[in-house]
Structures are given as C-alpha cells and as structure tokens.
Design a binder for these strands. Structure first.
Lengths: 154, 154
DNA sequence: CCCAGGTGGTTGATACGTCACCCATGCCCC
DNA sequence: GGGGCATGGGTGACGTATCAACCACCTGGG
C-alpha cells in the first residue's frame, strides 16, 4: 500500500499503516507466545476463557458464536477440533432438538487457567507498558466510536 | 477474553479489547469490500500496489517478501496463486540462477488501478472520517513506538 | 394439522498462512 | 578448487477462515 492514484496525507498514512502494522505484529507475537507456552491458539483461548466464565462451563454453540462474533460455521469447525483435543465436549440439548452445548472439560479449564496469567503479562509487557494512560484513553474512545460507526452502517 | 486470574483494569481492558475489535472489524470490512468490488484479497492488493510502483513492474521475490514482511514460503504460495489468475508472472533471473522475478501483468495493473481509489475511499469513510487529527497523531505515535519496542525485543 | 419460513448445526470446497523440509545455486575460506 | 554453509526458492501437510449448500428441528399462521 503505497501511493497510487489519490492517496492519503502523510499523517493519515503514518497513522493508518502504523495501526495495521501494530496489530499484525502484536497479534502475531501474542499468538505465538500463547501457542508456545500453552499450546493454545488465540481462538482456542477466546473460547475457553468464555466457557470458563459461564455457569456450569457450558453454553449453546450459537450463543458462544454470537458472543465471540464468529460465524456459526467457524464455531462448528473449531469446536470439532477442540473436542478432538479434549478441551471441550459437545452435549446434546434436550430443550431444543437441534441445539448443542459446548462444555469445557477439566483439561480445558486447566489449560486456560495456566494460559491466562501468561497472556495478561504478555499484553502488559508488549503493549500496555509502552502507552501512557492518556493515550490509552484516546485509544479506547477512538476504538469504541469507530466500531459503533461500523456497526450502525452494516 | 474476560476476567480470569489477575486481569486488566477497566480502562486497560476497554482500550485493549476495543483496539482488537476495531482491527478485526475494519480489516474484515475492507477486505470484503476489496474482494467484492475488485476480486482481490488484501494480500493480492498489497503485492500489486508494490509491483505497480516499482521500475518495470518487477521485483525479486525475496525483496518483495522483505518489503511486505512476509515469509518467503507465503510469498511463494501466494505468487503461485496470483500467477494462476494472471495477475503476475514469474520470470527467471539471469544474474542469480536461484532467483525469480515477480512481474505485474497488464491485467494486474488494471486490477490494482481500479481497486486503489475504492480502497482509499473506504479507509476514509470507514475510519479516517471518524477520527480527529489529534487522535490520529496520537495513534500514529503510539503505533510507531510500540512497533519499535516489539522490533527491538525480537 | 400442515406446511412455510426461520434457526441451529454440519459439511465440503476453496483460499490462505505456517512449518518443516527439500533442492539448487552462490560464496567464502582453507 | 573443493567442501561447507548461506541464500533463494519450492513443496506438502496441517490448521484455520469463509462460503454455499444442506439437513433437522422448531414455530406460527391458516
């Protein structure tokens, strides 16, 4: 993404490209750490954190998908893989014959409990430690505003 | 990613989660627009923009990979797919028997020239238009600083 | 009661990124 | 000048995201 036809001002470009790069690097780094230390992908981690935090450690698959803002297909594929690794199990839903619960296993709980503090520490040391509180607030405001705009236009 | 063990302050969490969500949404949205309007993935677009901007529209594969910060394997796979679609062609390198040039085709040039203004307009309307210049500057500074930190620690 | 449309979930195809290897060529130093 | 190592590149396997199609079940209106 360089200049081609009408492009952005220097400041716009700097901010936009910086933002993209930041997320790429930070995301990649955090994902690799999580994988190396806990053998979990970022997606695994997100699923397990939610399940660990919900009564009985189980939730309807579609509900989980909505919370994480995933497509149902992605959730289905992913749950299948996680079940294969013993992190969760599927459970039939008696109230709704179509439904399926996803339930975190003991192994899943152990994995997420081991991973969470490491992950938090990584977010801190790689990101939060290098940002001032004022900057952090600005970042939060901008993010919320733009996400809201994106949502209302969709 | 909710609370589990020691977690983040409310402000930290808001900023961090907002930042992640923002990138996910914005990235997804821009990618889908590019795909729908121009039949190019974000990766295709990045490759073509660079090739269109370089003398003779050709560059060594490894050089391209370094510019985009991709792994050589990813570049190899991707160039193969793009070549299959006629957006680029591979060319042998006479100075270095191992080397390969990637050359943009006329079709590739046409595609990127059609896509670029639409993409810029989308970045503006979905993101830049909702951020003040001061916020943009903060964003640029934070991004550069954190990326620099990440680079020096790797 | 039946059926039309909606919802929950699965599956298979395709595209993509990463990893671990492999091969060939270039380069350098003894 | 030959052996070892680095470099440029390709390949196949695997995990993963998306899309489209599909099936099963539920639900509401006639």
């Amino acid at each position: 993404m360089a200049e081609s036809a009408d492009w952005l001002t220097a400041e716009e470009q700097r901010a936009w490209r910086g933002f993209v790069r930041l997320h790429e690097r930070l995301g990649g780094r955090l994902a690799r750490l999580l994988q190396a230390e806990s053998d979990l992908s970022a997606a695994d981690f997100a699923v397990l954190v939610h399940l660990a935090d919900v009564p009985e450690g189980r939730q309807r698959q579609q509900g989980l998908a909505r919370t994480l803002e995933w497509e149902k297909s992605r959730m289905s594929h992913h749950v299948a893989r996680m079940a294969g690794r013993g992190l969760v199990v599927r459970q039939e839903c008696s109230e709704d014959g179509r439904g399926a619960f996803v339930v975190i296993t003991e192994a899943g709980r152990a994995a997420v409990e081991a991973a969470a503090p490491l992950h938090v520490a990584a977010v801190r040391s790689l990101f939060l430690d290098h940002v001032t509180p004022a900057e952090l607030r600005t970042l939060g405001e901008v993010s919320e505003r733009v996400v809201a705009k994106l949502d209302e236009e969709s």
